[in-house]
Design a protein around this nucleic acid. Structure first.
Lengths: 118, 118
DNA sequence: GATTAAGTTAGCCTTGTGGCTCAGTATCCG
DNA sequence: CGGATACTGAGCCACAAGGCTAACTTAATC
């Protein structure tokens, strides 16, 4: 565990903002230019661009400029990173549940553990 | 979409820090006291406690103090929140792939807006 | 070739985050 | 009772995040 370095920090931090999550939602439906993406938000463009750059540097999207238009595309990779982490956590959890099942008959006076079974 | 308010912000932001992710990993294996959790980290206790409180206020863990020991327990709820969001995004993505399949022959100059009506 | 459109750069400002120390408080142990 | 243990609270600090405006750079369009 914790073998992903900075990457996970960035991937998750990118999700910790409603603007960025909404952008990802829209990009899920297909590529779009920066101003198309920015349109639903009140925000000034430079502010919005920071979100776009953040998403790109976290690996959630890739962008390409042709002419004066920058087009953004969703990258599925990051979804996989998140899912991998989630599965990893769930595995730890399950493994523990198994252990507890085999543990039922044991006396265990220091408490804590028993209460967690609920 | 975007019907979860602040909650998602907090849930994801809580994950955007290696210390907190590692704490969650350890709690996956069962409840633990604050100092047990803090032990692997170099950090001073008050600093560490901020992470604990953050995790708690984001709903990732719950804590209970008995005597002078505060015991922390993982809450599965937040996993579900994350998974729900992930599935939602994946759905958008899939729906789009379907649409694209039915779309191959169409010309598509003014883009995005029209496509959203579909 | 002048205007408009789409970004981009630079710089500022406020708040939040993640760390610290130092000084409590409240058990628990002997 | 007295000391150790396990937090807790207050306050400080540096830096990152997320917003702004104003000015600039490139296309595209007329």
């Amino acid at each position: 565990m914790a073998q992903y370095p900075q990457q996970l920090d960035d991937v998750f931090h990118a999700l910790a903002d409603p603007t960025r999550r909404e952008v990802l939602g829209r990009l899920g439906a297909g590529p779009a230019s920066v101003s198309e993406l920015a349109e639903p938000f009140e925000m000034a463009l430079p502010s919005f661009m920071k979100h776009i750059r953040y998403l790109e540097s976290a690996g959630w999207i890739s962008t390409r400029k042709s002419g004066r238009v920058r087009t953004c595309v969703l990258e599925r990779k990051s979804f996989d990173v998140v899912e991998a982490w989630l599965r990893e956590q769930r595995d730890i959890w399950e493994r523990r549940t198994d252990r507890l099942e085999r543990f039922v008959t044991t006396t265990h006076d220091k408490a804590t553990e028993k209460e967690a079974r609920e």
